[in-house]
Amino acid sequence: MKPSKQDLIDFVYTEARLLDDRRFAGWLDLFADDGIYWMPLEWDQVEEKLTTSLMYEDKLLLRVRVQRLEGERTFSQKPKSRSQHLLQLPQVDEIDHENGTYRVYTPFHYAETRFDEQQILAGWARHTLCVVDGALKIKMKRVDLVNCDAPFRNIQLFV
């Protein structure tokens, strides 16, 4: 499979829709086995593992999150949170068929709500995608929040 520019754009929209529909198992399937979800703590952060991040999660940890969200005794999800992603048109930064690397950049606004509290986050998602068995998969989803250094309240779902 040689994904087109439109395939890459569609992928990013589909991913957001799965999250907002709470179809988390399907969302998890979008990750390559060695895929990483990364949310840095600092502006322009380069270091991945030797400093604190808000999230730096392999597929095992993402699975834990997804299973926990549906858990009987997950008290912080009674009632459950809801999310909504508003995406700018994803910009395709790189198409490299030879190495199978594709990079997409997507500014977003994100709302997460539970009870009477709604928080709005804004930032930029950077997807690094690859092709596994004929399908696009996430190698790295990097989410930079514009207020990454703010004192946040719970962020329980996936930006």
């Binding site: 949310m39 703590l41 593992k49 030797l50 400093t51 604190t52 991040s53 808000l54 999230m55 730096y56 940890l61 834990v64 999150r65 926990r68 008290f75 912080s76 004192p151 946040f152 309240r153 719970n154 962020i155 329980q156």
Partner: peptide, 24 residues
Amino acid sequence: LERTAMYNRIINAPTSIVGHDDLE
């Protein structure tokens, strides 16, 4: 340091599922 940083984000972050349990 890798272990220390991992512990911090997994247990102490506002994005941490352990933190979510406690804050609730």
